[in-house]
Design a protein around this nucleic acid. Structure first.
Lengths: 210, 210, 210, 210
DNA sequence: TATGAATGAGAGTTCATTCAT
DNA sequence: AATGAATGAACTCTCATTCAT
């Protein structure tokens, strides 16, 4: 799956509902990625998608909230399919240490693969309260992931693989550290993410070690 | 020094330049704290400060950017004086482990003492590119702090107090984890910050240990 | 073609894009004509065009600059078509003396026919630097005309029809004299333009004579 | 007399009423000269004169109109003294042809000597109706001069020195041509004014010749 | 499936001026 | 001779949305 799945249809042709929506969503992602959420207006999206008027956006989506909601799910879906594709079958779910490392490294890898989407998620989380009417259901997915990580950690402690620490605090720290890489990457796009991911995993492996 | 130093003078009275500015800055902080940066307009600030018109804000500050700049320094100053007051003389600078713990715990303590200010700093960092023309000098101060932490860690490694890890990655993780607490606190204001701070320090102490 | 091509549609009716634009442009011309450029605000235009709000102006034109640009071309077009209509075929282009006279008299005639438009051109030239972003392409058209006149004069000199003088200085003087008539007319609307034009042509004919 | 008679007193020192007024008037002239009348606000004048607040301008002048009035007389006085100084005793008032040439050449010379002042006069004439309440008494002076020229021309015709033409039309043309040089000079500051003035005088001399 | 036309609300900013002292 | 503080009015422009067809 590629982010470029959201893109311009042949110009002038009438397009199916679905394609138009995808096109607009794609343009919105690109716009947020470049200018940030706050400067992402219908007008700007219109330009990026080469639409004749903003009216067509209002037509396909009930609301700005509605559009954003869909943008969020698109990005979230992309991420979760990326992660399952990358993790599934690779690591033994019973291997707690391996799961921790896999969590960190795959998150960092996603960052490298779709920095634009990461920016979008961060921006949307930061502006969650902008318009009333769009729940952060997508963001919640993230929190679920953090919750899962916490549970894995707790389990690992019971099994004696991990030492003593507050599992939820550790999970939060891991999650935050990963988010921090995004900022780092934005500042320096040439950052070596593989190394960075490994070093991050090293750190938290030692922190969690028995 | 308290955040409440910024407050309403008697209504209708003419007030000194400095007092007015402080009042407006205080109202701005409160407004950002409650509604977020994006919804912080002159109109809203006016209401909170019980001013007769927004015009008076434009009178005392060259710009919206100018106002925000000053808000940022106010908050930054408050934080740095809080931290020095709390850390100075308490910990031996040569005690690397102690410094790491002190860093984390004092940051978390600040969070508990001035949650509003933390919100402001986060919001402003997120909207740094909103209006061109206001440098994020204040935010840079933060980055300086992270840099100092990284140097402390490196030094500790040379002295054999700390183990092997990438100091800058560790420093970033610590900083991010601390920021994460802010979100945590916003979600659950009854969060026991002292415990949380200790647990966080524990985690990173183990991660850094020789 | 008449300036009154720009005018009010029935009130309250929805109108085509083109008609609205023409209406707004017309109202703008009238407003500049009456109050001058500096006092021509969207609000005043709105009133003259009987619009419900100034918002509709921003809707149809990207900018104030954009509107003014279009006003300028409207007026310029009007003038150039007036002039060609009046000069074309009437004077033999090889008759240099006749061309000089035709230039002066037709310019003065335009002044009489569309004093409002002349005011607009003068005002806009005077405020060319008001808002950055609108090139004075229309004004340049004027300069082109002066350039053409200069060339005609030079040619006439070569042919021995005209005497010795600096052609560009002469052309500038002619052009300026014509502009001066506008002010004269504004001060005394009953001024006999035909006579005035003839006298002006007489003067420059003698000045240019061999 | 120099335009720089209007200028900054020693900073910080209390200054006499007259000096302050001159300083402000000088700053206003400079500001109009550089930015044009429309962009000449109290704020801009304040900056150029290095005043602490615009309030001081309101203090020394009843009005914006009042200030402009005085600016106008300052400039007008400067010009008329320049002209008398240059013309007086040089040309025999009975020498009509000489007077015509002197008129043109001295006006052009003034232009070269004080381009800033010329800009001011042109700008002010163009915005004569900006603020109600300031008569263009100064501009009228100009018109008086044109009137005098017209009378000289008429007299010259009676004496047989000049040919047949409408004296007021000729006078207006001369006056306008001279103003045109200002624009020319603004476009190309290296323009050779002496030559230009002579050529202009040549043209009108021929136009007026018997 | 898509448009054309319009809209109300609100934004920040600049302006010359005035009431005090 | 000068200031500090404040002000009301007007400005252009952007926003997401809606009524028609």
């Amino acid at each position: 799956m590629h982010v470029n799945d959201f893109h311009q249809p042949e110009l002038g042709l009438s397009v199916t509902e679905a394609a138009r929506r995808a096109q607009i969503i794609g343009a919105t992602i690109a716009t947020i990625g470049e200018h940030g959420y706050a400067k992402t207006s219908f007008a700007r999206i219109k330009e990026r998608a080469s639409l004749s008027s903003t009216r067509i956006i209002s037509y396909h989506f009930t609301n700005k909230a509605g559009l954003m909601q869909q943008v969020l799910s698109a990005v979230t879906d992309l991420k979760s399919s990326f992660l399952t594709e990358r993790t599934e079958g690779v690591v033994d779910p019973a291997d707690r240490r391996g799961m921790l490392r896999a969590y960190i490294e795959s998150e960092v890898a996603f960052l490298g693969a779709y920095p634009e989407c990461v920016r979008v998620m961060l921006e949307m989380a930061a502006h969650a309260d902008d318009t009333e009417g769009w729940s952060m259901a997508g963001i919640v997915v993230q929190q679920v992931r953090v919750g899962q990580l916490a549970r894995q950690l707790t389990q690992g402690q019971r099994e004696g693989v991990f030492g003593e620490f507050a599992p939820d605090v550790m999970a939060m720290s891991v999650s935050q550290a990963v988010d921090g890489v995004a900022a780092q990457l934005a500042a320096d796009p040439k950052l070596d993410l593989e190394t960075y991911g490994r070093q991050l995993a090293d750190i938290f492996e030692r922190a969690a070690a028995a």
